[in-house]
Design a protein around this nucleic acid. Structure first.
Lengths: 175, 175
DNA sequence: TATTGTTATACTCTATAACTATA
DNA sequence: TATAGTTATAGAGTATAACAATA
C-alpha cells in the first residue's frame, strides 16, 4: 500500500480543487482519515490473522447472538446481498469457525453459529483489534472522542433519510 | 463488534477501559457514516455520470495541474499502484477526457492532461458532486462542520505517525 | 543499472439474476 | 406464489511481478 498519507499534497484531501467550501473540505478530510484507519485495520487483519474485514464482521455479529443468525439476517446486518454471505460463510465453515445449524422452525433456513473454536478465535482477534483502534484514535483524548461520537449521531440520523440514488429534490425540503 | 461489556466506572482502570471502549464505538459509528456517504456518492456517480470514484479522482488531480501529471505522480496521489493508473487512464483516454502528451524531458514518461472536453465535463460533475456532499452533510450546521473539521486535523496528524502494519511498539512512542 | 510505464494475472468485495427447496 | 439460500457470473478495485523502452 502506498504510504504517502502524511505528504500534504499527495493524499485524498488534495482532491480539493480550489474550494473554500466547508462541506466538501470536511468530507475529503473525513474520508482521508477513515480510509487510513480502515486500511491499517485491513492490513493488520491480513498480516496478523490472515483474515478480512467482512469475515471479521460476520464473526462479530455471530458472537453477539448465541442462538445464531440466518443467512438473511447476516445479509441485512452486514449490508451486503445474500450471495456474498454464502461465500463468506462457506470459507468460515471450512475453517471450522462457524457452522450452519438447522433452523428450529424453517427447514429452508439455517442458524449460523460460532463454533467453540470460532468463538475463542474471534475473542482473541477482537481484543487485538480493539487495541489497534485505540492506538489509531489516540490522537483524540476522551473528551474529543465523545464530542465526535455525539456529533456523528446527528449525522447518522440525517444520512438515514437521504435517498441513496436520488439526485435532486427541490421541493420536499427536509425539516 | 461486541459492545456488550459492562465496566464499572469507579476506579481509574475502569475509566481507562471505558475510554478504550469509547474508541471502538466511535470508530464503528464513524465507519458507518463514511461508508454511507461514500456509497451514495459512488451510486450517484454511476447513475448520473456513468463513472466511478477513482476515475473522478484522477480527473480532479489533473484539473489542478494544467501542465499534466506523469503516471507515477498520479499513482502517488491516488494512492494506488501503477498498473491501475494505466487502466483508468486508458478508459478516460478512450472517452476523450484525458490525453497522454509527450513529457518535455523524459521520453519514458507522459504528461497526462485533461482535454478541453475532459475539463468541461469534470467541472460539470464536480459542481454536482459538491451539491451531493452539501446535501449529505446537511445534518450538521456550519458550526458543527467546522468543529469536526478542526478535530479531524488532529486525528490526521496522529494517523500519519502510525505504522501501517506494525502491531505494537511499546517503546519508541512518538514525541 | 535504475526508472517509467505496460501487460498479465489474481484476489477481494460486491451486485444481479436464475435456480432449488421449502413455506 | 413467496421466501431462504445457492450458484454463476460480472465488474470494480486493488496488488504483484515480469517486461520493454529509456535514462
Amino acid at each position: 500500500m502506498n504510504l504517502a498519507f502524511d505528504h500534504p499534497t499527495t493524499d485524498l484531501e488534495s482532491r480539493v480543487i480550489d474550494d473554500h467550501h466547508a462541506a466538501l473540505k470536511l468530507w475529503l478530510r473525513l474520508l482521508a482519515c477513515t480510509t487510513r484507519v480502515e486500511g491499517v485495520v485491513r492490513n493488520r487483519l491480513r498480516s496478523e490473522f490472515a483474515t478480512t474485514l467482512p469475515r471479521f464482521d460476520l464473526l462479530a455479529q455471530l458472537e453477539r447472538e448465541p442462538e445464531g443468525l440466518t443467512m438473511g439476517e447476516l445479509s441485512q446486518r452486514l449490508m451486503v446481498t445474500g450471495g456474498n454471505i454464502t461465500g463468506i460463510t462457506d470459507q468460515l465453515e471450512a475453517e471450522g469457525l462457524v457452522k450452519r445449524a438447522p433452523h428450529p422452525s424453517d427447514r429452508r433456513a439455517f442458524a449460523v453459529q460460532l463454533t467453540p473454536t470460532g468463538r475463542r478465535q474471534f475473542r482473541r482477534m477482537a481484543a487485538v483489534h480493539e487495541q489497534w483502534v485505540i492506538e489509531l484514535f489516540a490522537g483524540w483524548n476522551a473528551d474529543e472522542k465523545s464530542q465526535v461520537y455525539a456529533l456523528l449521531a446527528g449525522l447518522k440520523t440525517h444520512l438515514a433519510s437521504v435517498d441513496t440514488t436520488a439526485v435532486k429534490r427541490k421541493s420536499k425540503e427536509k425539516t
